[in-house]
Design a protein around this nucleic acid. Structure first.
Lengths: 192, 192
DNA sequence: GCCTGATATATCAGCCTGATATATCTGGCC
DNA sequence: GGCCAGATATATCAGGCTGATATATCAGGC
């Protein structure tokens, strides 16, 4: 059996907050959980179709497609809520994330420390950017749902992101230093 | 255009160290970069076939399939080395990793703090296990390639893993505390 | 009336995972 | 010698998912 589509549950979780169309789902996911979860249209639209067949979601009759514009607003059904609750209680399967940066550094000796240094510098800059984005998301979540008891739950993921990024920045500095030391000693021995 | 198969380059990097068969590649990847990169047989074997067609790797004539046993040992070609070097220099595309644990916690209010607490506790235990595995990998890399200049490069990924896991453990403790405070206040208000 | 950028849905090639199937080899045990 | 368990070895497939591409509508500025 192949692994179960997690996209289903991201959709159900978002639709539990308010009915939305595919495009809106993408934006809502990007805005609220974008720092650790993303969905592409190529995944969302077929998944929504399947979920409608399975009666986990249904088209909102309040929002008919007006004029020439096709607009399919979905809302979650009782079965959908039950499926989400079941998934939320189920333990996650452990999964090793693929880290392309680390793979390039692992084989870095093949091309030399200058290229590895460049990778680390780019990664550091990217992490600084993500940190800024995360603070925006934090702001957004706090503002839009100020008195919501869900806020504490949502804040957990933001803290995870902040702690993770801080650790990554520290690693970047450490790695940068190590690679520079390596460049120095290689140069002393006459190699480029 | 779909994204490029990164599996190719994991294979090339490993084969640059020594010729191997598909099964050996899986073990070598698991042992050396397993904490941030994994490959399944279902990906490795077809990719090796394609790479042989593209002349990035070739069957090692030194290792004929002996007896009834099929054994295909691959080695990297000059074109393969060039392709690896080109990839190693190319910047990585930024990519948001999917974090199922955070997604479950984000929607955690739907089922209550007990289930979220259980997720955090399981994740903490898993992280402790990974930390132990990482120390074994560290040991393995240090021992098997003691005088190798590649060691410094390989150590970078281990440090990344250690710093990341430490940050994750700290987050687990923080999240656990926050969720317990939440359970307490919910109980005071009479709800389970 | 035109253009730009946001809104909106749909589809596809190709990568990748986890599962399944199949067969051989090695070493321990009786 | 014969048997078994576990490691070695290759192959295939359904189904999830990404990134690209195509297409069309709507809102606002000029």
């Amino acid at each position: 059996m192949a692994r179960e589509s997690t996209c289903r549950f991201a959709i159900l979780g978002m639709l539990c907050r308010e009915p939305m169309n595919g495009y809106g789902l993408r934006s809502a996911i990007e805005r609220s959980v974008g720092h650790f979860w993303q969905e592409s249209y190529g995944n969302l639209y077929p998944t929504l179709d399947r979920m409608a067949e399975e009666r986990l979601v249904e088209l909102d009759p309040e929002e008919p497609s007006q004029g020439g514009r096709v607009r399919k607003v979905y809302r979650v059904t009782t079965a959908g809520r039950a499926a989400l609750a079941e998934w939320l209680r189920r333990p996650t399967l452990p999964h090793v994330e693929r880290n392309e940066l680390l793979l390039k550094l692992f084989f870095g000796a093949q091309v030399g420390s200058e290229d590895s240094l460049a990778h680390v510098e780019r990664s550091r800059a990217e992490a600084e950017g993500l940190l800024a984005t995360l603070r925006l998301i934090d702001e957004d979540v706090r503002q839009s749902r100020r008195n919501d008891p869900e806020l504490a739950y949502q804040h957990l993921s933001i803290r995870a992101g902040l702690l993770g990024l801080e650790a990554h920045l520290r690693w970047c500095d450490e790695a940068h230093e190590a690679l520079q030391r390596l460049t120095g000693s290689t140069k002393k021995r006459g190699s480029r």
